[in-house]
Every structure is written in C-alpha cells, then in structure tokens.
Design a protein around this nucleic acid. Structure first.
Lengths: 136, 136
DNA sequence: GTGCGGGTTCAAGTTGACTTGAAGTCAAAG
DNA sequence: CTTTGACTTCAAGTCAACTTGAACCCGCAC
C-alpha cells in the first residue's frame, strides 16, 4: 500500500496551486522543508493545512511576508500565534474597509458611466472634479 | 507676464502626479506630445483635464491600456468616446461587484480574527474549509 | 531500450506602473 | 562667472508573486 505522504504534484492538485508555487513558498520560508524520498519532496497532511491557511490569509488580503510572520508564530499554533493573528487583523481591517468604501464609490461611478448619455466626454459630469472623490 | 502654459513640474504639482509619471504616460501614448519651448515640455489646460480623466478612470479600476482605448476615442470627445466609455463600464462593473463581495467576506473574516479567542490556530474555525468561501 | 510522466535545480523572465540614476542643457540669481 | 534648480534623455531598477526554461534524473510500461 502507498504511503500517506504526497508528492509535490499531488499536494498541488489537492490545494489548487501549482507545484512551482509550492517550491517558491518553500524558498521564501513560508513552508518548511519537507522530507525527501529519493530526492523528491514528500508532504504530510500538515502541509495541506498550512497551504489552506496561506490561501485563506492571502484571500484576506495579507501579503506573503505578513503570512510568514503569522506562520512563524505558529509552530505549536499556540496562543502567541493567535495573538499575532489578532494584531495583523486589526492592522489590516481599516485598510480593507477603506478599500471597500472606495470600491463602492467607483461602482456608482461605473453605473453612471454605463448609463451615460452625454454627447461629449468634455462636458460629462463623470469627469468633473467631484465625480469620483478621492479617498486616499 | 508668464504664458499660461505649464512646465512638467507645474503640471505634476497641479495634478498630484510625479513628472516622471507624466513622461511615462506620454511614452506609452496616454498623453499627446506637448509643445516644446527651448526643449522643455509645455502643457495647456487640456493636459490637466486629460490627467484628471486618467486619474478618475484609474481609480475606477481601469488599466492604463483600457484608459488609452478610452482616450483614443476621445479626440473630439464625441459620441463614439462616450459609447466606448459605456462599453468599458459595462465590462468592468461585474468584476468590481465580485471584488466588493469578496472583500466583504474577507472583512467579516478579519473581524472574527480580531476577536479570536481560540487557544490554538489548529482548531480555530477561521481556518476551516468553510471559513472564507472562495468567490473566484 | 525507449518513451512517458513525473520529479529535481537554478537562473531568468513576466506583469504593470512606475521610479531612479547618470549625464547633460539651460535660464535666472547672486 | 558660478551656482542652483528645473528641465532633458535613455537605460536600468523596483515590487510581488510567481512562471518558465534548460538540462537533468528516475521508475515503470511496452
């Protein structure tokens, strides 16, 4: 019977990433070096979990080095890691909220643009100074 | 009395961009080549307007080559340009809406994370499969 | 043996939107 | 006359997150 360790290809398949990304994550210290069998990387279920964490955190808008600082606190996945997560979340939240607000404005602008009947762009209110207020 | 034409530095100052960006925009065909006085670029108010359009469109999430296709239709700024704008808006809107929805999910996730009391990341629901549903 | 489909390394390329650096010009101020 | 500051060009560097390419190994089916 086959071992329950995964090759990099199988891991990639299960986690929906490319093998090259997984090697890259290892290179930048996001994933620990896996065991080798005959030179090839073999991964246990911990790797699947870590990749899930990476995926989730990434979709939460965290950059890879932020994710690394999260993961660095993890071995043990203990209270310190949770605390780190909280700090990162608190720092990221206002940024995300600002982004959502700006996107909402842009959405209104695009909706107006899709309905625009102006004969010329030059006198279209859409490009007036107040049409799309800056949020930055 | 000074001419009403602006140097690149003045234009940059008025539009809040760097002179290097303005040269770059010219290079990629986003801005027309301005007149020169003694080798230096001089801009009229049309350039201010065009940069405003670029700024607005960019904050609306359009890439520079999309903005160029918008601007290409503009000379005259006529009905065709407006039509082009409408088409681009209609194409961009669904993408933006999806982005906003995903951002809202991520926001909830981060808010939970900021309040997280889990003793360990390993059994934190935040990293469960269903914690942050994929939208892509 | 030969081909296939994995795997391996390392370096270099990709994308978008710029910025930076080096080396030079030019006009006005001191 | 020299310095200062703003301008000029062109090439190259930056950032993030990967991907791609070249050249190689390795086991298994035919």
């Amino acid at each position: 019977m086959p071992d329950d360790l995964l090759t990099i290809g199988e891991l990639a398949h299960r986690t929906g990433r490319r093998a090259s990304s997984i090697r890259y994550y290892e290179e930048i210290g996001l994933l620990p070096e896996p065991v080798r069998m005959g030179g090839q990387r073999r991964y246990d279920s911990g790797a699947v979990r870590t990749l899930t964490v990476i995926d989730t955190a990434q979709r939460a808008g965290l950059a890879l080095d932020e994710i690394r600082s999260l993961l660095d606190a993890v071995p043990g996945g203990d209270a310190a890691a949770v605390e780190q997560l909280r700090r990162i979340a608190e720092r990221k939240l206002p940024q995300l909220i600002a982004m959502i607000e700006r996107a909402a404005l842009v959405r209104q602008w695009l909706e107006s643009a899709a309905r625009c009947e102006c004969p010329s762009l030059d006198d279209c209110v859409l490009f007036g100074d107040a049409a799309l207020p800056a949020v930055r």
